[in-house]
Amino acid sequence: MMVAALVGVMMVVTTLAVFLIMARLYRRFPLPFLMPALTTTFLLVIGLLAFNISYDTYMIGGQWIDHLLGPAVVSLAYPLYRQRHVLARYLAPILTGVLVGSMIGMASGLLFAKVFGFSEDLVYAVLPKSVTTPVAMQITSQFGGAPSLAVIFVMVAGYSGVVFGPYLLKAAGLHSFIGKGMGMGAASHAIGTAKAYEFGEDAASVSSIAMTLSAISGSVMAPFIVWLFY
């Protein structure tokens, strides 16, 4: 018992320390592949492998951090509340964009993965890729998929939106802050929203609303889409 508590504290402290150092590095060099969550995960995986520590041992402490994910998702109500005037003003275009985005995002990912013959548990990890990480993990585990894989695909969706999104939006003639913000938030969640700040405050507000509402509509729609195709 004592040993477990000690190991737990050690894992939490290590995670925090690595994260804070990586956050500092990112502030110094703000490059997409140096985002602290990415580099911290990478270093921890290397560390666990090097010292031959199992994931279960790491999670003795890791689960304490994990427990905060629930209230963190609840916290998304706060930015949504702060943006309520933007939401009320553009309610119809925002809601349509979110619903179309969730539907097409999940159905296309599921269909492609299914057509190319990937197994069901992998399909469930791909399904919520455009939904913010903590919610995506819950959607995937709800169907018995692996939440850790879901996180990887959420990251891929985020970064591909950030890297290719600006070109795509331009090529498609999406010049309005509504179009740009909606595209970024509905496809690339929090990572896309961070990028949307470069388009301006308006686009970022829409993107942040799109991301929160996509998390809600994604979790409502996921069981329906799975039921439709399986």
């Binding site: 553009y90 964009g97 179309v100 993965a113 509504i178």
Partner: peptide, 30 residues
């Protein structure tokens, strides 16, 4: 699968962005 996720993400961006922009323009909000 990584490629599939990238393509599907960009389709999502195109669809949601286009729909909301058209909708906003139609109602003259912009």
């Amino acid at each position: 699968l990584v490629l599939i996720v990238m393509v599907s993400t960009l389709i999502t961006m195109l669809a949601s962005g286009t729909v909301s922009q058209i909708f906003a323009n139609k109602t003259g909000m912009q």
